[in-house]
Simulated assay, not measured.
Amino acid sequence: MTQRRVTVLGATGSVGSSTVDVLAGDPESFAVVAVTAQTNAAKLAEIAKRLKAKRAVVGDPSAYEDLRAALEGTGIEAAAGASALDEAAAMPTDVVLSAIVGAAGLKPTAAAVRAGHDVALANKECLVCAGEAFMDLARRHDANILPTDSEHNAIFQLIDGTDAADIGSYTLTASGGPFRTWDAEAIASATPEQALKHPTWSMGAKISIDSATLMNKGLELIEAHHLFGIAPDRLRVLVHPQSLVHAMVTFLDGSIHAELGAADMRRPIAHCLYWPRRSRTPIKSLDLSAAPSLSFEQPDPERFPALRLAQEALRRGQGAATVLNGANEVAVAAFLGHRVPFGSIARIVEETLMAADREGLLQVPASVEAALVLDGEARRLAVDVLERQ
Rank of each mutant, 00 (worst) to 15 (best):
7 T>W: 03
67 L>V: 09
288 L>Y: 06
131 G>H: 07
198 H>E: 01
249 V>D: 04
90 A>Q: 02
179 F>S: 00
249 V>T: 14
343 G>H: 12
344 S>Y: 10
40 N>A: 07
200 T>C: 04
66 D>A: 15
17 S>L: 12
265 M>D: 05
85 L>F: 10
358 R>H: 13
273 L>M: 13
66 D>W: 01
14 S>G: 11
157 Q>W: 09
359 E>D: 13
290 A>R: 15
160 D>K: 15
182 W>P: 00
59 G>K: 09
330 V>I: 15
180 R>C: 04
19 T>R: 01
60 D>N: 15
47 I>H: 01
361 L>E: 07
108 P>T: 12
247 A>L: 07
245 V>W: 01
136 D>S: 15
362 L>E: 03
83 S>Q: 14
54 K>Y: 02
79 A>T: 04
322 T>W: 04
167 I>D: 06
236 R>N: 15
386 L>T: 02
376 G>T: 09
62 S>A: 15
12 T>Y: 03
31 A>M: 04
284 K>I: 12
47 I>R: 00
78 A>M: 02
376 G>C: 05
98 S>D: 03
248 M>T: 13
103 A>D: 02
288 L>A: 11
288 L>W: 05
230 I>K: 05
188 A>Q: 07
76 I>V: 11
143 A>C: 14
179 F>G: 00
197 K>L: 11
125 E>F: 08
240 H>C: 08
67 L>N: 06
298 Q>D: 08
307 L>T: 02
234 R>W: 08
274 Y>T: 10
366 A>H: 11
332 V>P: 02
61 P>L: 05
177 G>V: 10
259 E>S: 12
250 T>Q: 13
60 D>G: 00
281 T>I: 12
150 S>L: 06
153 N>L: 06
33 V>N: 00
276 P>D: 10
84 A>W: 05
364 V>L: 12
93 T>S: 14
191 T>Y: 03
353 L>Q: 06
105 G>W: 08
100 I>R: 00
301 P>S: 09
106 L>V: 15
102 G>R: 03
262 A>I: 09
288 L>M: 14
